[in-house]
Design a protein around this nucleic acid. Structure first.
Lengths: 167, 167
DNA sequence: ATAAACTTTCATTTTTTTTTGAAAGTTTAA
DNA sequence: TTAAACTTTCAAAAAAAAATGAAAGTTTAT
């Protein structure tokens, strides 16, 4: 396999993986492209390489920056903007995890708390509902906290976690 | 909030959360419905409660069973099939994690290994590509293994993990 | 202040994903 | 073996999500 082929395969795979995890394909592809680029890349080049429109590139780059995993860079004497991805994988995982927690898990927790707090009247159905949603609330809260703790280790959190688990 | 309202809110929220994580909305809603039902539910009732077609119900129930998180049940003297969800949350999380690893992470790892193994010729770009994809391969492999180890604790793995991390 | 060189926005179009529903298939009881 | 009571399948329709591209907006150099 030659470089161009490998790069393309990587970008396609990363895009497909993104889709399966609720991230739009192009967004994941742009991220993949930036991840393996040693130099900052211009919007023009992203459009060219992924064969996408200007609008699409612009919107997805904005989204990636909102996630905090892609940065704008300015080159001296160049009017154009260039983009780079967060390349430190520990940091990348921490940011994605924080963002998903904030956007998706926290709001879900709020709802779980609400619905598990209803007056459970006589019926077995209602009792079971309250019991099950309460368990779910506790579980999700605990998982969210664990993730938070783990990623707080900062440098090399994954390796540190491996060590903790092993011993 | 009364029971019916709470139940509906829970089902809707679980459905929306599913979408954000790449699981089709109806599939997540059916799962939510079964999670909080104390008794097995017939396909007819699922269709009625979620206002979906027979085909949709059938296909998504099949998918949930393929994931191993919903079971068919037969009631004595009843021709119809009934469905229940895995209600143990530890077990549920383990199954989802195993399944996503098998379906999505493992194939992605295979590609990462492939593309990181190309002959890195002279250019800095190629060198960076190999370096970055190799790091990514190591990271994803390690994360996948950690998840596997954690869920191996079986009963109460999440609580056990909390304890390990805290001390 | 002007205009060139860019980027962003968003109504419209395209693509992808999901849902429908009717026909085909299966199981059970008589 | 027949037929009633179910479930599954899948081509077509509908809905949802993503992409386009041109107009509007912004920035910078002169």
């Amino acid at each position: 396999m030659e470089f161009k082929e490998a790069k393309n395969k990587f970008v396609q795979t990363w895009g497909a993986l993104g889709s399966q995890w609720g991230i739009n394909k192009t967004m994941a592809q742009i991220h993949a492209l930036l991840m393996v680029s040693s130099e900052p890349v211009s919007m023009e080049d992203i459009m060219e390489e992924l064969q996408i429109s200007r609008g699409n590139a612009s919107m997805n780059l904005r989204a990636l920056m909102d996630w905090g995993i892609v940065y704008k860079e300015y080159k001296a004497g160049e009017r154009r903007e260039f983009f780079t991805a967060e390349k430190d994988l520990d940091e990348l995982a921490v940011k994605i995890s924080r963002e998903r927690s904030k956007r998706e898990i926290k709001p879900a927790l709020k709802v779980l708390k609400e619905v598990s707090s209803i007056e459970a009247n006589a019926t077995a159905e209602e009792k079971h509902f309250v019991e099950q949603t309460t368990k779910l609330y506790d579980f999700v809260l605990k998982a969210d906290n664990v993730l938070d703790k783990i990623t707080e280790y900062k440098d090399n959190w994954l390796t540190k976690l491996v060590i903790k688990i092993m011993k």
